[in-house]
Write a protein that binds this DNA or RNA. Structure first.
Length: 278
DNA sequence: ACGAGGTCCTGCGAGC
DNA sequence: TGCTCGCAGGACCTCG
């Protein structure tokens, strides 16, 4: 499930291939992925657009476009099962089936947004729209501007379970279920603990582990459980390094206790060690 | 402001 | 074998 490390990997793979390229045309198979833009407006804007930048913000891939008379940002959030890949060959029938957006490029290759479950979203924003969208998102966890004090302030402002706060994109971006589980385990913090009850020491440790784990996951090209692929179509490798997510019922790698799981926080699976996370 | 629960989507695996 | 059903979940919504 594309969280920060997965989208960062996609963006790093796409950037050298996509910047400078012109999009010839575009086709969209399903309109239900669009947010705030009609199919007609999106396809019209993409046809002939030049890509001038590929960046990441939160869990979104942001493709900066130069249009004849204006600029625009194509914002793709892969959701659960989305991937962005540049193909230099014809698609297999299976690949074509789930290709939601297809955009042939001026070099003969094709940019494909693939999304099996289509929980991902596509936006097309102008500068003002982007500013508003960006402003509603929390700070980037890997940005040094997010100081331990600022992070502590964010956590102190909510009585919700720390895991839920960590996954709230308005408070801090990029962390989803997998990395929230991993970071809380590494920091030895009970996921259900009210965020505001964490000590300064807790929040410092948590930020450190969030950063360490996100960085390690980027280095491993992300976590592939089923659908996630890098920008070149490869699987990630960080699933091999997970200590709790997907390991419920197995033994804790630190203390050997059987890992517990619950759906009580935000109706998502939380896997944790009773002993290491008190 | 908060918690609870529903919605979107489809593939997959369990159970019968 | 073939069917139904629950689950996976990020973001967003409504309701109380």
């Amino acid at each position: 499930m594309p969280e920060l490390p997965e989208v960062e990997t996609i963006v790093r793979d796409l950037r050298p291939q996509l910047v400078g390229r012109q999009i010839r045309s575009a086709k969209l198979s399903h309109e239900d992925v669009l947010r705030g833009v009609t199919k007609r407006r999106l396809l019209t804007a993409l046809a002939g657009a030049r890509v001038v930048g590929v960046t990441r913000r939160a869990k979104h891939a942001v493709i900066d476009l130069e249009l004849p008379a204006r600029t625009a940002r194509l914002v793709i959030q892969p959701g659960m099962t989305g991937s962005l890949i540049i193909h230099d060959r014809a698609l297999t029938p299976d690949e074509a089936k789930y290709a939601v957006l297809r955009a042939p490029l001026d070099d003969g290759r094709e940019l494909i947004y693939r999304d099996v479950r289509r929980l991902g979203t596509i936006l097309l924003l102008d500068d003002r729209g982007w500013s508003a969208y960006d402003a509603a998102l929390g700070p980037e966890p890997l940005d040094p501007a997010l100081t331990p004090a600022r992070f502590a302030g964010i956590l102190a402002s909510s009585r919700q379970a720390i895991k839920k706060v960590l996954m709230d994109q308005r408070k801090i971006v990029g962390v989803g279920n997998i990395y929230a589980n991993e970071a809380l385990f590494a920091a030895g913090i009970d996921p259900s603990r009210p965020s505001s009850r964490l000590t300064t020491h807790d929040s410092r440790r948590l930020l450190k582990h969030v950063r360490r784990i996100l960085s390690a996951a980027i280095a491993s090209q992300g976590t592939t459980f089923r659908d996630y692929r890098t920008g070149t179509g490869a699987t990630g490798n960080f699933q091999l390094e997970l200590l709790v997510y997907g390991r419920e019922g197995e033994k804790c790698r630190v203390c050997g206790t059987r890992l517990a799981h619950t759906h009580e926080i935000d109706a998502r699976i939380t896997v944790f060690c009773h002993r290491c996370q008190q």
